[in-house]
Nucleic acid binder design. Structure first.
Length: 444
RNA sequence: GCAGCAGUAGCUCAGUUGGUUAGAGCACUAGUUUGUGGAACUAGGGGUCGGUGGUUCGAAUCCACCCUGCUGUACCA
């Protein structure tokens, strides 16, 4: 078969998708095991829903012809549009609506799953990522909201973050709702663009955010963003209201009281917390990291929050006439892992096998005897999987980070003692084959 | 989507008044050592210089368009 260069498959990945290697995956596993333990402790059920949903079930309307994939990945199957889920909250609302009569009320569930977004990736943001989501459905009791913040904090601290590394910012959608009422801001467009501008205060600062509230703003690349055209006195009232460190918001006051009862202090009232625009109706929370995150080139990047959530009392109701208040929180696990990898004091153990070097194919039986002994002792081990000289085998063992190699050639077989070489120190010792497992455990 | 910057070997990058056969370090392969890695030395393989078109006797180098990446910004249920 003639190979034409032009027909060679591409080795590049699609935009926004990445290969994830062992270190990252092991840290992710560590995070997940912490999550599961905490969720059991807090009394949440484990749920899984499918990757695909009908597009309209998860809050997307039929894709239009020009951009059939705006925001999500979709395709048409038997005349119905399907989409890959873009979060775990919308599928939960669908699940609750479908199983409304059977589920306990309130219903506390958690879920871990990959979600997909068809949008431009940024630093530490991809188009495919793993999300953790915990929700409490079927009660207006704000203890649920508080519990979600506390459980996320416990997860973060179990993963190795300390109280200086993160903070939970809380606010309530009702604060901005009231404010807009007072200022007679009624147009939906203006409300949305104002919320967006306020959402950027922590990143841009008040001076820049105020430009977005007014006429518009030019960013440092020279790009211009239109503002929401509020009047100066309106902007002033917004600024005065939101800059206050205290609030008369009932939501916030009540949650604060519950936090106090838990003796939980790692939170801050921050009225610039806005989160999603569409469905939140009450308390909203956002989890932010307090340390710098750098990219592969060592530049500090705008990392944003690693998670957040809030109360959405109307979402389930969209599926029918179901009065079903709810509150939830999610963490972007890959982003958390990305951040954890940058903490200097964070270490994860990666097990690499002891390599049994091969000298002679006729000795395969002897190698397997040793291998079986080691594996029966639960020691990660392998017979050199390739072919080649001892030097090549040593290079292999060194490259994979193996702790030791075992040399068992004719000389050793005659004497019944294998040579055990510690690859860290270079020391070699002669060990009876039945003692190998114990000797290796000493150097691991 | 918009904007700025950038694409030369697997990786990091040199390479301007446009001129033989396009370089270095690391990595890779082989050897110095046919039973010893992480050090050294020797030799070797590997590039349509992001793509297409143009200017020119001649283009990695100049021009146009396109593609891709990074960063910011917008959108983000």
């Amino acid at each position: 078969m003639v190979k034409d260069k032009k027909t060679k498959p591409s080795k590049e990945l699609p935009l926004g998708f990445v290969d994830r290697q062992e270190k990252e995956l092991l840290i992710r596993d560590f995070v997940i095991s912490n999550i599961k333990e905490v969720m059991i402790k807090y009394g949440f059920q484990y749920l899984e829903t499918p990757s695909f949903e009908y597009t309209d079930s998860i809050g997307k309307f039929l894709p239009d012809k020009d951009r059939p994939d705006a925001g999500v990945f979709s395709f048409k199957d038997e005349n119905k549009w399907l989409s890959l889920r873009y979060d775990l909250t919308a599928p939960l609302a669908r699940y609750v609506a479908k199983n409304y009569l059977e589920i306990p009320k309130p219903f506390k569930r958690y879920q871990l799953g990959t979600v997909w977004r068809n949008e431009k990736p940024g630093p530490g943001r991809f188009r495919e990522f793993l999300q953790f989501d915990a929700d409490c459905v079927g009660t207006k009791n704000l203890q649920s909201d508080a519990e979600l913040c506390i459980l996320v904090s416990e997860i973060l601290e179990r993963c190795g973050l300390n109280k200086n590394d993160y903070i939970v910012n809380i606010s309530s959608r009702k604060i901005t709702d009231k404010l807009f009422e007072k200022l007679k801001i009624n147009s939906k467009d203006q409300i949305l663009s104002t919320l967006r501008a306020l959402d950027k205060i922590d990143r841009l600062g008040w001076d820049e955010a105020k430009k977005l509230l007014g006429e518009g703003r030019k960013d440092k690349s020279g790009d211009y963003t239109k503002g929401s055209n509020l009047k100066k006195d309106q902007i002033k009232i917004i600024e005065d209201t939101l800059k206050g460190k205290t609030t008369d918001s009932e939501d916030v006051l009540e949650i604060t009281k519950i936090f106090e009862a838990y003796n939980f202090k790692n939170y801050k009232f921050d009225p610039s917390v806005i989160r999603g625009l569409e469905y939140y109706t009450g308390p909203i929370f956002e989890v932010n990291l307090n340390f710098d995150v750098k990219n592969a080139k060592g530049q500090t990047i705008q990392f944003g929050s690693i998670g957040g959530g809030g109360r959405y009392d109307n979402l389930v109701n969209n599926f029918g006439n179901l009065d079903c208040p709810a509150t939830g929180i999610s963490i972007g696990l890959d982003r958390l892992v990305f951040a954890l990898m940058q903490k200097k004091d964070f270490k994860i153990k990666i097990s690499r096998p002891v390599v049994i070097c091969t000298f002679d194919k006729l000795r395969t039986k002897e190698y397997i005897e040793i291998l079986t002994k080691l594996r029966n002792s639960n020691i990660s081990s392998e017979i050199y999987p390739g072919e080649g000289k001892l030097k090549k085998q040593m290079e292999y063992a060194n490259k994979i980070g193996s702790p030791a190699v075992i040399l068992y050639g004719d000389d050793e077989i005659k004497s019944g003692k294998a040579t055990l070489k510690n690859l860290k120190t270079g020391n070699e010792s002669s060990v009876k084959t039945e003692d190998l497992a114990n000797e290796i455990k000493k150097l691991l």
